[in-house]
Design a protein around this nucleic acid. Structure first.
Lengths: 208, 208
DNA sequence: TGAGATAAATGAACGTCATTCATTTATTGG
DNA sequence: CCAATAAATGAATGACGTTCATTTATCTCA
């Protein structure tokens, strides 16, 4: 029969659906409808909805910018990579629990990213043994920050319990004229700087 | 009618159910069964399954150990808090996407924690404006690390693509005798040290 | 050219969920 | 003691992922 469907098409349709309706709107039925096909037809090309999520994840990984590791100083490369990584997955947080536990074995785009990042760390003078833990630590931070990026502005509103949390409430108010001012971007920048400084100290050769 | 049910009982039953069957086993039907009640009866005490998750989350928050902020040097207090926080939520990752976006307004335990942590930061000499972003950054890292803690040991197995990712594959192998050795704990420790060092530098008065 | 073999799409069906609602049951307050 | 109320029931609903027997179209090869 004429192949109306393939994994690339499914991936593209899933991405478009997610961007329009969010992850709640990503159902097998909706996905099939957007492809003009019956839901059961999808199962000739993917084994489950989980596989659809993996396909989407791999596609997103290919969009993460790790090019700086070839051209920029290590600190700048990490920063560029981290911002790009967080920016992409902030809009795809439901995938994070999938990625964080997903073996890279069948994820070529993810592997390509790790290879480039590892090379960058080597060039920057990191001892081989420190590289994977450093990347893991950075990724943990990036994933956590991606969640944060979706928090509502009033997430730290202590409400009627403000009286019993005076120091916290005051610290929140100190952030800006708005009573509730969620500092997701500022926090990301601060923590990233701290990580870059702290991890950078592990380098043996600081010339990279 | 005799109140067989209340929010505390529901929370306790949900926690026990999760510890025995995981979050897949936490269904409204299973929860009701464990309480000897019909599923619909739950809705007299909680408005939705999401509220059950929020109740569980608050209960877990009360178990996070932030006592060090009253007694230990700032670095040690942060370390203790972070380890406790990660240890608890590593077994409850499905809650993380809920927490990260949940306003603290109706979460007294969470607020209590923030108040204590904020006080610790103040005592340690942090400028008020830096405190919330620092806590947010630490929390992002802790949440991301909680996901990591559940990764399988072979998550970095590059499989048949090992040849095309030589530096990465070698870096993974350098970690230990096991071919695939996932360094979740080591990574957490390294990143946490880096964050503590980097954020600690923001202090004005280093005596705390 | 024509006859399988095969890959792909269909539609009906299933089981699992969370959730709703009319009804029943037990307790409490006036 | 009665009425109001809080709480539990069981049946029903709709959404969802997934399966499967069946049909349909294309490809291969004699």
């Amino acid at each position: 029969m004429a192949a109306v469907l393939d994994q690339d098409g499914i991936t593209a349709a899933a991405l478009e659906l997610v961007s329009k309706k969010g992850y709640d709107g990503l159902t097998m039925a909706a996905l099939a409808r957007s492809l003009g096909v019956a839901p059961s037809a999808l199962y000739n090309h993917v084994s489950s909805k989980d596989e659809v999520l993996k396909l989407v994840e791999e596609d997103l990984m290919s969009k993460v910018d790790f090019g700086g590791f070839r051209t920029l100083p290590w600190e700048e490369a990490v920063r560029q990579w981290a911002y790009s990584y967080r920016g992409i997955f902030a809009r795809h947080t439901p995938l994070i629990s999938v990625i964080a536990v997903l073996p890279v074995t069948d994820a070529p785009q993810t592997l390509a990213m790790y290879e480039a990042v590892t090379e960058g760390f080597l060039r920057a003078g990191f001892p081989e043994k420190q590289i994977i833990p450093s990347i893991v630590a950075l990724e943990a931070y990036i994933f956590g920050a991606a969640f944060d990026a979706n928090a509502p502005a009033d997430i730290f509103d202590s409400g009627r319990l403000a009286d019993s949390t005076p120091h916290f409430t005051s610290a929140v108010r100190s952030l800006g004229p708005d009573q509730n001012n969620y500092p997701s971007d500022l926090a990301f920048s601060m923590g990233l700087d701290a990580l870059i400084t702290g991890l950078g100290a592990l380098r043996v050769d600081q010339s990279g």
